[in-house]
């Protein structure tokens, strides 16, 4: 099984952190998130508009409450715009001995997890992820819950291959 995923590693650029080639997330993941967050934002707008202009007397809901609550759909819309630009920036990379994940638009985070320090691996799939063949890979190290290494938006096949590679690496080293 290890031979299968071996060609994913670029051996020529092994030891330097700046030369990691990140692979973008699955296209389905990006689209799914846009649709989902967009739908939530839209729903919040509709809800707010219904409260504001619904068929009831004007003074049942105080105007100040409406003014404050409009921030909720606004924030959701901002998040939607952020996701449109930020999601394509997400990427992961597998090298021979470690796994990296990069994310963030304004603040770029990149995490590198050495494979020898992984305690166990998990693949998580919610109902929507199952429907569209996606999966999230979680690798736990001794760093604790807060530093769980997670790659969302992998295709299920990729996630499984990654897991097998990690497990094989653990048993061979």
């Amino acid at each position: 099984m290890r031979e299968l995923s071996n060609d994913d590693i670029d051996l020529t650029r092994l030891s330097s952190h700046e030369n990691i080639n990140f692979i973008p997330m699955s296209g389905k993941y990006v689209v799914l998130r846009r649709v989902l967050i967009g739908a939530i934002a839209l729903f919040l707008w509709v809800l707010w508009a219904f409260a504001a202009f619904g068929p009831w007397p004007m003074d049942i809901i105080a105007p100040s409450i409406l003014n404050i609550t409009i921030t909720i759909p606004c924030l959701a819309s901002l998040f939607f715009i952020y996701a449109i630009f930020a999601d394509p920036q997400k990427g992961y990379a597998l090298r021979e001995h470690d796994l990296s994940y990069r994310s963030g638009l304004f603040i770029r985070h990149s995490v590198t997890q050495p494979l020898t320090r992984i305690q166990h691996v998990e693949i998580n799939r919610g109902p929507l992820q199952r429907r569209y063949g996606l999966a999230e890979l979680c690798a736990y190290s001794a760093g604790g819950q807060a530093s769980t290494f997670a790659i969302p938006g992998l295709s299920h096949r990729d996630a499984q291959q990654l897991r097998e590679f990690i497990v094989a690496h653990k048993t061979s080293h």
């Binding site: 304004f106 603040i107 770029r108 985070h109 990149s110 995490v111 590198t112 997890q113 050495p114 320090r117 190290s141 001794a142 760093g143 530093s147 290494f149």
Partner: peptide, 14 residues
């Protein structure tokens, strides 16, 4: 002894 490394750079820091 390192378990994991993380790098953060904001747009200004970059």
């Amino acid at each position: 002894k390192v378990q994991q490394v993380r790098l953060h750079e904001s747009w200004l820091m970059k």
